Simulated assay, not measured.
Amino acid sequence: MYAALDIGGTKIAGALVDEGGSVVHRAELPTPARESAQRMARTIDAVIDTLSTAPAWGTVRGVGIASAGPVDTAAGTVSPVNIPAWRDFPLVESVRAHPLLLTGLEPVLLGDAVAMAAAEHWLGAARDADNALCMVVSTGVGGGYVLGGRLHPGPSGNAGHIGHISVGIDGPPCACGARGCVEGYASGTAITRYAVQTGWSPGPGSQPSAAAVAASAREGDERALAAYDRSARALAAAIAGSAALLEIEVAVIGGGVAQAGETLFTPLRHHLRAFAVLDFMRDLKVRPAALARDAGLIGAAAAARQQFAEGCGAASPVVHETSA
Rank of each mutant, 00 (worst) to 15 (best):
A37D: 07
A37E: 02
A37W: 02
Q38G: 15
Q38Y: 08
Q38F: 07
Q38W: 03
R39N: 12
R39W: 04
R39G: 13
R39I: 09
M40T: 10
M40F: 15
M40G: 13
M40I: 14
M40C: 14
M40A: 15
M40H: 15
A41E: 08
A41M: 04
A41S: 13
R42V: 09
R42D: 14
R42N: 12
T43D: 08
T43I: 10
T43W: 03
T43C: 11
T43L: 10
T43S: 14
I44P: 03
I44F: 07
I44K: 06
I44E: 05
D45L: 13
D45K: 10
D45H: 12
D45S: 13
D45N: 10
A46F: 02
A46P: 00
A46D: 13
A46G: 11
V47W: 09
V47S: 09
V47N: 12
V47C: 11
V47K: 13
V47Q: 08
V47Y: 09
I48G: 11
I48P: 00
I48A: 14
D49Y: 07
D49S: 09
D49L: 07
T50D: 13
T50I: 06
T50E: 11
T50F: 03
T50G: 03
T50M: 10
L51I: 03
L51R: 11
S52F: 01
S52Y: 03
S52M: 10
S52N: 09
T53D: 12
T53A: 13
T53P: 00
T53E: 14
A54K: 07
P55A: 15
P55I: 10
P55G: 09
P55N: 10
P55Y: 09
A56D: 12
A56W: 07
A56F: 06
A56H: 11
A56V: 12
A56G: 09
W57D: 03
W57T: 02
W57P: 04
W57Q: 07
G58Y: 06
G58W: 04
G58S: 11
G58R: 15
T59L: 14
T59K: 15
T59V: 05
T59Q: 15
T59I: 02
V60A: 13
V60Y: 05
V60L: 10
V60E: 04
V60T: 04
R61H: 05
R61F: 00
R61M: 10
G62C: 06
G62R: 05
G62S: 07
G62F: 01
V63L: 04
V63N: 00
V63R: 00
V63D: 00
G64K: 10
G64I: 07
I65A: 01
I65T: 01
I65Q: 02
I65Y: 02
I65K: 05
I65L: 07
I65E: 01
A66P: 00
A66F: 00
A66L: 02
A66H: 00
S67E: 01
S67G: 01
S67W: 03
S67R: 08
A68H: 05
A68N: 00
G69Y: 02
G69P: 00
G69S: 01
P70S: 05
P70N: 06
P70F: 06
V71N: 02
V71T: 08
D72H: 05
D72M: 06
D72I: 06
D72Y: 02
T73W: 02
T73V: 14
T73A: 15
T73N: 07
T73S: 14
A74S: 12
A75H: 09
A75S: 10
A75E: 12
A75F: 03
G76D: 02
G76R: 04
T77L: 04
V78H: 04
